[in-house]
């Protein structure tokens, strides 16, 4: 019950704060419109189909990108765990590429790959693959030694040990990496859209801002927040499926 109550309460509080700022008129209404105006702007964007189109463009890029990137990252982590020389190479590449922001590679990627899906695939993979990879590698290397002894006493070979002991034990940390990568995937897509300026929520946000259509900018920001929440909830569902025991265990220990 409280699980539902708290977000509702927070949303209400946010709305109240918002409306208070509007009524206090500290900011001109032109720049900080009342909630009703924002809702109206959102509705009219939906009526024109603009909102759905932008959400679909951005959402499909970010969601497909996040799924692919997490699977590839975990796969590379598993491969690197099995092959130490591969791990050394990938760790070096990760250290070099991790500080590079998605925005930095977009102009060049547009040039090489055009404005289609290949651009987004490239940018998302290049900048987002490292959190799941690094989490997988470090979590698989840090299995509690007592559990490894238990596995050996049960007669596990390397593969059974990985499947029955090391991977489940690593799941909470791996999924923390997945959660992080999923957030960055959305950011990378939105930034790319802002820079390429053709379609998607990122593009629309800038277009509306430059046209000083402020209620629509706020409505779009709200939509981005919803998309981000939906992706976060999806990751949480995966987490409960694969590492629910860890949540329950922590909830009990706390």
């Amino acid at each position: 019950m409280t699980a539902l109550l708290r977000p509702v309460l927070a949303l209400g509080l946010l709305a109240a704060l918002w409306q208070a700022v509007v009524w206090a008129a500290v900011v001109p209404e032109r720049y900080f419109p009342p909630i009703a105006t924002v809702v109206q702007a959102g509705m009219s964007m939906i009526a024109r189909g603009q909102m759905q189109q932008a959400l679909f463009d951005t959402g499909s890029r970010a969601i497909l990108g996040a799924i692919a990137v997490n699977l590839i990252g975990i796969g590379l982590g598993l491969a690197a765990t099995g092959a130490p020389s591969l791990r050394r190479i990938l760790d070096t590449v990760a250290a070099i590429l991790q500080p590079v922001p998605p925005a930095a590679v977009v102009p060049m990627a547009v040039f090489a790959l055009g404005l289609g899906w290949k651009l987004y695939a490239f940018v998302v993979v290049l900048v987002t693959i490292w959190p799941p990879y690094l989490a997988t590698v470090s979590a698989l290397a840090a299995t509690n030694p007592v559990l490894l002894s238990v596995g050996r006493m049960a007669g596990f070979g390397p593969v059974a040990m990985l499947w029955h002991i090391r991977l489940p034990a690593a799941m909470p940390e791996i999924l923390a990496g997945v959660r992080y990568a999923t957030t960055i995937a959305l950011i990378a897509v939105i930034v790319s859209e802002m820079i390429t300026g053709r379609d998607g929520i990122g593009f629309l946000l800038f277009q509306k801002a430059f046209a000083i259509r402020i209620p629509e900018v706020f409505a779009l920001m709200f939509a981005v927040g919803l998309l981000g929440s939906a992706m976060g909830l999806a990751v949480s569902a995966v987490y409960r499926g694969f590492a629910g025991w860890h949540l329950a265990q922590r909830g009990r220990a706390a």
Binding site: R6, P7, L9, A10, L11, L13, L14, A103, T183, L186, I187, I190, V191, M194, I201, G202, L205, F206, K208, A209, I214, V217, F218, L220, M221, V224, G225, L226, L227, G228, S229, M231, G232
Partner: peptide
């Protein structure tokens, strides 16, 4: 929950505002 809600809003999306 307020922070959790804000956390879903990617930083670049705040740039226009």
């Amino acid at each position: 929950p307020l922070v959790a809600m804000l956390a879903t809003l990617p930083p670049p999306a705040t740039v226009p505002v």
